[in-house]
């Protein structure tokens, strides 16, 4: 994981149009996920790179020890006390994290909801994340194409309490509906973003229904890994599958042909760009009210951190794909969203 992020960083720093690096010792960024999860591992490197690149006072990746709303709140409160003034937060709960974010803002800090959004109205400046709905929609489109435009899809996804899960379920459904009945979502299995339940339920499902399913789409990290392993185990290349994220297991399954492709998200870019924006905002820039904000089910101030589909051909060099989207977004960000004096 680390190696990948380092590679990403090296490539990125080479390609990025050198953003004006204002040396402000005062911007101390904390990157705080909702709990430990491999998805966020890239934030650590992103923070470290942003620190050197933009001359930040600090950009530290701090993880609550468990996925507990209360632990995250305690950690955030402590970080504020420690002098952090800029926060990239993955909300442990789209509603439940609002009050602690408000508290941070009340005490002079700035907050960007990152990788997942807070439900409006919220004190966050904006939400920087994968447009999960769009990503799932594009993934489903790719899957439908691989399936030849017809058949039955099973959808495996993450925690029901994750604000993104419902968006993903709806998006996959939408892609299927657009085929006018040629493609049908026959089952959605949710709440399996942990290895043991994912293993049991996905295998149980495939065991009973493998013959009746033509395509699988997974929109959460662990289900993608488990489903990729299962297809390898059955030795099935008939069932098409589109995964999510860049776990080694998924990338390897794509290379070996068991999985058709994966929707990359951009955790590194989220951490890197988020830190950059927070620093700019502390140094004379303001957000444009009329910027090209997108909206999703949770918020009207949303910035897509990008998503990209990689298949067998592009999987070996997927790091380039990730770096590409980060560079594009960073290059245009100031023009689109910031007013700087």
């Amino acid at each position: 994981m680390k190696m990948i992020s380092k590679a990403a960083a090296a490539l990125l720093l080479g390609t990025v149009v050198c953003a004006p690096a204002l040396a402000d010792e005062g911007t101390k960024v904390a990157l705080v996920p909702g709990g430990p999860h491999p998805y966020f591992a890239a934030w650590e490197q992103a923070g470290a790179d942003a620190k050197t690149e933009f001359g930040l006072g600090a950009a530290d990746y701090r993880v609550p020890a468990k996925w507990e709303l209360n632990l995250q709140s305690q950690l955030l409160e402590s970080l504020l006390t420690q002098g952090y003034n800029s926060f990239l937060i993955f909300p442990g709960d789209a509603v439940g994290t609002t009050s602690v974010a408000q508290e941070l803002v009340d005490n002079g800090a700035q907050v960007i909801a990152t990788a997942g959004c807070l439900k409006d109205p919220s004190p966050a400046l904006f939400c920087l994340g994968t447009d999960t709905g769009n990503s799932a929609y594009l993934g489903a489109k790719e899957l439908i194409r691989a399936m030849g435009g017809k058949g039955k899809i099973a959808h495996f996804t993450g925690f029901l309490v994750d604000p993104n899960t419902q968006l993903r379920i709806d998006a996959v459904q939408k892609a299927a509906d657009e085929t006018n009945g040629a493609v049908e979502v026959v089952q959605v299995i949710a709440d399996i973003d942990a290895p043991q339940p994912a293993e049991e339920k996905i295998n149980a499902y495939l065991a009973a229904n493998a013959a009746g399913v033509d395509g699988i789409i997974t929109t959460a990290w662990v289900p993608a890994v488990v489903a990729a392993n299962s297809l390898r185990k059955i030795g099935d290349k008939r069932i098409k599958m589109v995964g999510i994220d860049h776990d080694e297991v998924v990338i390897k399954a794509i290379a070996d042909g068991f999985v058709d492709g994966t929707m990359l998200q951009n955790p590194y870019g989220q951490g890197f760009i988020g830190s950059y924006v927070l620093n700019r905002l502390r140094n004379g820039c303001t957000l444009k009210e009329d910027g090209p904000w997108k909206s999703n089910a949770l918020t009207n101030r949303f910035v897509d951190s990008g998503t990209v589909f990689v298949d067998q051909a592009t999987a070996p060099t997927y790091v380039n794909a990730m770096v590409g989207i980060t560079a594009d977004l960073l290059a245009g960000f100031e023009k689109d969203f910031l007013t700087c004096s």
């Binding site: 293993e199 295998n203 149980a204 065991a207 009973a208 493998a210 013959a211």
Partner: peptide
């Protein structure tokens, strides 16, 4: 109700769990 329940892969999965 669901004959696939006794398929060999399903028995394998069930026994592993």
């Amino acid at each position: 109700a669901q004959p696939a329940f006794l398929s060999s892969f399903n028995i394998f999965v069930l026994m592993s769990a």
